[in-house]
Design a protein around this nucleic acid. Sequence first.
DNA 1: TAAAAAAGTTGTCATAAGACAATGTTTTAA
DNA 2: TTAAAACATTGTCTTATGACAACTTTTTTA
Lengths: 189, 189
Amino acid sequence: MYTELEAYIKSEVDIKQSELKKIITHFTPKNTVRNEMLCNIGQVCKHFYFIKKGCLRLYEIDAKGNDITGYFALENSIISANTSFMLQKPSRDCLVSLEPSELLVISRDNFYKLINTIPQFATVYHKFIEFAFIHSQMRIYSFLGMEGIDKLKWVMEHEPKLLSRISSKAVASYLGMTNSTLSKLRSKL
Amino acid sequence: MYTELEAYIKSEVDIKQSELKKIITHFTPKNTVRNEMLCNIGQVCKHFYFIKKGCLRLYEIDAKGNDITGYFALENSIISANTSFMLQKPSRDCLVSLEPSELLVISRDNFYKLINTIPQFATVYHKFIEFAFIHSQMRIYSFLGMEGIDKLKWVMEHEPKLLSRISSKAVASYLGMTNSTLSKLRSKL
DNA sequence: TAAAAAAGTTGTCATAAGACAATGTTTTAA
DNA sequence: TTAAAACATTGTCTTATGACAACTTTTTTA
């Protein structure tokens, strides 16, 4: 049940088995269906998720009604409606499972209990935020200046899993272009 | 000399005066001239900066030779060539002072010594990364979908200091457009 | 399994923004 | 203080991309 989560934590920090057990007992399993909403706009996000299987997407809906993807998370990674989870303010993002997924959930209260009592868990979270920041910066650098065709080539090279796994529509919203533009660019390659 | 830094830390966490003193003794003053390079491409960033006065800019140079701003930092904030500082890998960013600036510098070794011995300092850093992440996500959401004119209005509303303080050229590189486009958009308002 | 819905493709047209260049303005340094 | 450099503005032309629509394909669900 928890082997993937254990492996994830061990890959991030050195930790004694006893403390690892203490961590995982605070997670409970949760299965989702396709397009299940884990945090909706306006809600204050109270949970953090580990993805055993499946795929989650964090996105915002802009003024024109189009959506923009902030983040995709695949197997063996952790995610939440980050901004809302951090600030405990109503979320501007939606967090949904793109596929039927197997998750492990921890409440925010337990999450912070662990952060404050198990330094290695604090480190796991710390690394998560650092990575999330670095990834966001990379996207800004990569997508703000590039033309569409180069953004597409960029994901093909750096995040090929997204293209094989995720709908074109969602990928387009990640690249900051319309689905029709993405479709035309694909045919040009 | 250190009053601004003290005020900054106290605004982020509750801390005893004795520990505050312990922190600030690890910072040393450094004054820069305009366009002074604090971390260049290829260098591994070994320092973290508090800005007493002035303004720093973090940017990358893309394939076409244009530059893209990842981050501006003004008075009373902290910054580094974040990605390189975190990963200790050669930087893809440049960190420069746009104006003659008064900085307080701490070495990475001392920085981590403080992180590991003074929990409040760890919290200050933790909050910094959270903020940096949230800010980056906001930029992705705001700039990836918007048209130029809306991006301009967005900064005018949310980060007006940038427009009064920073060269058009640098602002354009922050908004992901050319300087001539920014200039034309300005005249449309 | 069939009907409905969603997603993807492709075409036309309009437009925002880039490239480049000419010119004016401000800043920097000798 | 002045020459040089950097920055900013504005114009023309070109092009990438969005909007919209028609159509096809795939997926969902009853």
